[in-house]
Amino acid sequence: MKLFPVFTALGAVGIAVGHWLTFEVAPMERTMRAAQRIFYFHVPSAWLTYIGFILCFGGSIAYLYNRKAKADAFALAAAEVGLLFGLIVVTTGPLWAKAAWGVWWVWEPRLTSMALLMLIFAAYWVLRTYGGRGEGVRRFAAVLAVFGAPNILFVHDAIRRFGGAQHPDEVVKSGLTNDMRVVLYPSLFALLIVFGLLLHLRYRAHRDQLTVRAIRRRLARLGA
Protein backbone atom coordinates (compact mmCIF):
# COMPACT_ATOMS: atom_id res chain seq x y z
CA MET A 1 0.00 0.00 0.00
CA LYS A 2 2.93 2.28 0.75
CA LEU A 3 4.24 1.59 -2.71
CA PHE A 4 1.20 3.07 -4.42
CA PRO A 5 2.03 6.78 -3.91
CA VAL A 6 5.63 6.10 -4.89
CA PHE A 7 4.60 4.51 -8.15
CA THR A 8 2.01 7.22 -8.74
CA ALA A 9 4.67 9.89 -8.41
CA LEU A 10 7.04 7.89 -10.57
CA GLY A 11 4.34 7.45 -13.20
CA ALA A 12 3.44 11.14 -13.19
CA VAL A 13 7.06 12.19 -13.53
CA GLY A 14 7.57 9.55 -16.20
CA ILE A 15 4.58 10.77 -18.20
CA ALA A 16 5.76 14.37 -17.89
CA VAL A 17 9.24 13.42 -19.09
CA GLY A 18 7.69 11.29 -21.82
CA HIS A 19 5.67 14.23 -23.09
CA TRP A 20 8.64 16.56 -22.95
CA LEU A 21 10.73 14.07 -24.91
CA THR A 22 7.96 13.47 -27.42
CA PHE A 23 7.21 17.09 -28.13
CA GLU A 24 10.57 18.75 -27.62
CA VAL A 25 13.41 16.30 -27.97
CA ALA A 26 12.19 13.84 -30.61
CA PRO A 27 13.46 14.66 -34.10
CA MET A 28 10.99 15.79 -36.76
CA GLU A 29 10.49 12.78 -38.99
CA ARG A 30 11.16 13.56 -42.65
CA THR A 31 8.03 12.38 -44.45
CA MET A 32 5.34 12.00 -41.79
CA ARG A 33 6.41 15.16 -39.95
CA ALA A 34 4.54 16.01 -36.74
CA ALA A 35 2.05 13.14 -37.04
CA GLN A 36 4.89 10.71 -36.47
CA ARG A 37 5.04 11.88 -32.85
CA ILE A 38 1.88 9.86 -32.23
CA PHE A 39 4.21 6.87 -32.56
CA TYR A 40 5.80 7.40 -29.13
CA PHE A 41 2.59 6.65 -27.26
CA HIS A 42 0.76 4.64 -29.90
CA VAL A 43 3.33 1.84 -30.12
CA PRO A 44 3.84 1.35 -26.35
CA SER A 45 0.04 1.31 -25.99
CA ALA A 46 -0.14 -1.51 -28.51
CA TRP A 47 2.44 -3.49 -26.55
CA LEU A 48 0.54 -2.87 -23.33
CA THR A 49 -2.67 -4.05 -24.97
CA TYR A 50 -1.00 -7.34 -25.75
CA ILE A 51 0.41 -7.52 -22.23
CA GLY A 52 -3.05 -6.89 -20.77
CA PHE A 53 -4.62 -9.66 -22.82
CA ILE A 54 -1.76 -12.04 -22.07
CA LEU A 55 -2.26 -11.38 -18.35
CA CYS A 56 -5.99 -11.99 -18.82
CA PHE A 57 -5.13 -15.27 -20.53
CA GLY A 58 -2.86 -16.22 -17.61
CA GLY A 59 -5.47 -15.30 -15.01
CA SER A 60 -8.12 -17.26 -16.88
CA ILE A 61 -5.95 -20.39 -17.11
CA ALA A 62 -5.25 -20.07 -13.39
CA TYR A 63 -8.97 -19.69 -12.71
CA LEU A 64 -9.87 -22.78 -14.72
CA TYR A 65 -7.34 -24.80 -12.72
CA ASN A 66 -7.75 -23.46 -9.19
CA ARG A 67 -11.21 -21.80 -9.28
CA LYS A 68 -10.02 -18.97 -7.05
CA ALA A 69 -12.27 -15.94 -7.47
CA LYS A 70 -9.20 -13.72 -7.16
CA ALA A 71 -7.63 -15.20 -10.28
CA ASP A 72 -10.83 -14.37 -12.12
CA ALA A 73 -10.88 -10.83 -10.72
CA PHE A 74 -7.32 -10.38 -11.92
CA ALA A 75 -8.19 -11.68 -15.39
CA LEU A 76 -11.11 -9.27 -15.60
CA ALA A 77 -8.99 -6.32 -14.46
CA ALA A 78 -6.26 -7.18 -16.98
CA ALA A 79 -8.81 -7.46 -19.79
CA GLU A 80 -10.29 -4.08 -18.90
CA VAL A 81 -6.95 -2.30 -18.79
CA GLY A 82 -5.95 -4.09 -21.99
CA LEU A 83 -9.14 -2.87 -23.63
CA LEU A 84 -8.41 0.69 -22.48
CA PHE A 85 -4.99 0.66 -24.11
CA GLY A 86 -6.43 -1.09 -27.15
CA LEU A 87 -8.94 1.73 -27.44
CA ILE A 88 -6.04 4.18 -27.38
CA VAL A 89 -4.34 2.22 -30.14
CA VAL A 90 -7.36 2.04 -32.42
CA THR A 91 -8.20 5.72 -32.00
CA THR A 92 -4.69 7.16 -32.34
CA GLY A 93 -3.91 4.73 -35.17
CA PRO A 94 -6.42 6.10 -37.68
CA LEU A 95 -5.48 9.68 -36.68
CA TRP A 96 -1.89 8.89 -37.55
CA ALA A 97 -2.87 7.03 -40.72
CA LYS A 98 -5.02 9.92 -41.94
CA ALA A 99 -2.25 12.43 -41.43
CA ALA A 100 0.48 10.18 -42.83
CA TRP A 101 -1.25 8.52 -45.80
CA GLY A 102 -4.52 10.41 -46.20
CA VAL A 103 -6.74 7.43 -45.31
CA TRP A 104 -8.22 6.39 -42.00
CA TRP A 105 -7.92 2.67 -42.37
CA VAL A 106 -5.82 0.27 -44.37
CA TRP A 107 -6.39 -3.45 -44.70
CA GLU A 108 -3.18 -4.37 -43.01
CA PRO A 109 -2.27 -7.32 -40.73
CA ARG A 110 -1.46 -5.46 -37.55
CA LEU A 111 -4.38 -3.07 -37.75
CA THR A 112 -6.88 -5.76 -38.55
CA SER A 113 -5.66 -8.27 -36.01
CA MET A 114 -5.73 -5.58 -33.34
CA ALA A 115 -9.32 -4.79 -34.33
CA LEU A 116 -10.30 -8.46 -34.07
CA LEU A 117 -8.52 -8.85 -30.76
CA MET A 118 -10.52 -5.89 -29.53
CA LEU A 119 -13.73 -7.52 -30.81
CA ILE A 120 -12.98 -10.74 -28.92
CA PHE A 121 -12.21 -8.94 -25.68
CA ALA A 122 -15.12 -6.56 -26.16
CA ALA A 123 -17.30 -9.68 -26.23
CA TYR A 124 -15.52 -10.76 -23.04
CA TRP A 125 -16.31 -7.41 -21.45
CA VAL A 126 -19.95 -7.47 -22.56
CA LEU A 127 -20.27 -10.97 -21.15
CA ARG A 128 -18.79 -9.89 -17.83
CA THR A 129 -20.91 -6.76 -17.64
CA TYR A 130 -24.30 -8.00 -18.82
CA GLY A 131 -24.07 -11.79 -18.77
CA GLY A 132 -24.58 -12.20 -15.02
CA ARG A 133 -22.22 -12.79 -12.13
CA GLY A 134 -22.50 -16.50 -11.57
CA GLU A 135 -19.71 -19.00 -11.41
CA GLY A 136 -20.75 -20.35 -14.81
CA VAL A 137 -20.31 -16.96 -16.43
CA ARG A 138 -16.81 -16.69 -14.98
CA ARG A 139 -15.96 -20.06 -16.43
CA PHE A 140 -17.40 -19.05 -19.81
CA ALA A 141 -15.36 -15.85 -19.74
CA ALA A 142 -12.22 -17.76 -18.81
CA VAL A 143 -12.71 -20.15 -21.72
CA LEU A 144 -13.30 -17.17 -23.99
CA ALA A 145 -10.03 -15.55 -22.94
CA VAL A 146 -8.11 -18.81 -23.18
CA PHE A 147 -9.39 -19.38 -26.72
CA GLY A 148 -9.32 -15.75 -27.77
CA ALA A 149 -5.79 -14.69 -26.86
CA PRO A 150 -3.89 -17.34 -28.86
CA ASN A 151 -6.41 -16.96 -31.66
CA ILE A 152 -4.73 -13.73 -32.57
CA LEU A 153 -1.66 -15.59 -33.83
CA PHE A 154 -3.86 -17.31 -36.40
CA VAL A 155 -5.69 -14.12 -37.29
CA HIS A 156 -2.44 -12.27 -37.81
CA ASP A 157 -1.02 -15.07 -39.91
CA ALA A 158 -4.16 -15.28 -42.05
CA ILE A 159 -4.35 -11.55 -42.68
CA ARG A 160 -0.66 -11.35 -43.45
CA ARG A 161 -1.23 -13.81 -46.28
CA PHE A 162 -4.35 -11.90 -47.26
CA GLY A 163 -1.95 -9.17 -48.30
CA GLY A 164 -2.12 -5.44 -47.80
CA ALA A 165 -0.20 -2.27 -47.30
CA GLN A 166 2.79 -1.69 -45.09
CA HIS A 167 2.22 -0.47 -41.57
CA PRO A 168 3.77 2.97 -41.05
CA ASP A 169 5.35 1.51 -37.97
CA GLU A 170 7.50 -0.74 -40.18
CA VAL A 171 8.74 2.32 -41.99
CA VAL A 172 9.57 4.03 -38.74
CA LYS A 173 11.20 0.98 -37.21
CA SER A 174 13.43 0.41 -40.20
CA GLY A 175 14.68 3.96 -39.76
CA LEU A 176 14.44 4.05 -35.98
CA THR A 177 17.33 6.24 -35.04
CA ASN A 178 18.93 6.49 -31.64
CA ASP A 179 17.34 9.86 -30.92
CA MET A 180 13.95 8.23 -31.52
CA ARG A 181 14.79 5.32 -29.22
CA VAL A 182 15.70 7.79 -26.50
CA VAL A 183 12.08 8.99 -26.64
CA LEU A 184 10.33 5.67 -27.23
CA TYR A 185 11.69 3.70 -24.29
CA PRO A 186 11.03 6.28 -21.54
CA SER A 187 7.50 6.64 -22.93
CA LEU A 188 7.07 2.89 -22.78
CA PHE A 189 8.37 2.83 -19.23
CA ALA A 190 6.04 5.63 -18.12
CA LEU A 191 3.01 4.03 -19.72
CA LEU A 192 3.98 0.70 -18.16
CA ILE A 193 3.74 2.33 -14.73
CA VAL A 194 0.36 3.85 -15.62
CA PHE A 195 -0.72 0.41 -16.81
CA GLY A 196 0.39 -1.18 -13.54
CA LEU A 197 -1.37 1.45 -11.43
CA LEU A 198 -4.64 1.11 -13.32
CA LEU A 199 -4.43 -2.68 -13.16
CA HIS A 200 -3.86 -2.50 -9.42
CA LEU A 201 -6.80 -0.15 -8.85
CA ARG A 202 -9.10 -2.16 -11.06
CA TYR A 203 -8.12 -5.44 -9.44
CA ARG A 204 -8.70 -3.99 -6.00
CA ALA A 205 -12.14 -2.73 -7.04
CA HIS A 206 -13.11 -6.21 -8.21
CA ARG A 207 -11.65 -7.82 -5.10
CA ASP A 208 -13.63 -5.45 -2.87
CA GLN A 209 -16.72 -6.42 -4.80
CA LEU A 210 -15.98 -10.05 -3.96
CA THR A 211 -15.73 -9.17 -0.27
CA VAL A 212 -19.04 -7.31 -0.46
CA ARG A 213 -20.71 -10.34 -1.94
CA ALA A 214 -19.14 -12.64 0.65
CA ILE A 215 -20.40 -10.46 3.51
CA ARG A 216 -23.85 -10.28 1.94
CA ARG A 217 -23.99 -14.06 1.84
CA ARG A 218 -22.94 -14.23 5.47
CA LEU A 219 -25.57 -11.70 6.46
CA ALA A 220 -28.17 -13.68 4.59
CA ARG A 221 -27.11 -16.80 6.49
CA LEU A 222 -27.37 -14.96 9.78
CA GLY A 223 -30.88 -13.98 8.78
CA ALA A 224 -30.57 -10.22 8.53
Partner: peptide
Protein backbone atom coordinates in the same frame (compact mmCIF):
# COMPACT_ATOMS: atom_id res chain seq x y z
CA UNK B 1 -18.18 -22.06 -26.30
CA UNK B 2 -21.82 -23.08 -26.78
CA UNK B 3 -21.52 -25.43 -23.82
CA UNK B 4 -20.22 -22.60 -21.66
CA UNK B 5 -22.70 -20.06 -22.99
CA UNK B 6 -25.71 -21.77 -21.39
CA UNK B 7 -24.56 -20.29 -18.07
CA UNK B 8 -24.89 -16.68 -19.24
CA UNK B 9 -27.84 -14.38 -19.67
CA UNK B 10 -28.47 -13.39 -23.29
CA UNK B 11 -26.64 -16.59 -24.27
CA UNK B 12 -28.26 -16.79 -27.69
CA UNK B 13 -27.20 -13.19 -28.48
CA UNK B 14 -23.75 -13.53 -26.96
CA UNK B 15 -22.81 -16.72 -28.75
CA UNK B 16 -22.59 -15.33 -32.32
CA UNK B 17 -20.79 -12.25 -30.97
CA UNK B 18 -18.23 -14.51 -29.37
CA UNK B 19 -17.92 -17.17 -32.05
CA UNK B 20 -17.66 -15.01 -35.17
CA UNK B 21 -14.47 -13.12 -34.26
CA UNK B 22 -12.99 -16.41 -33.04
CA UNK B 23 -13.42 -18.17 -36.37
CA UNK B 24 -12.07 -15.28 -38.44
CA UNK B 25 -8.87 -17.16 -39.38
Amino acid sequence: LAVMAVNARFAEVLLPMVVFPMVTP
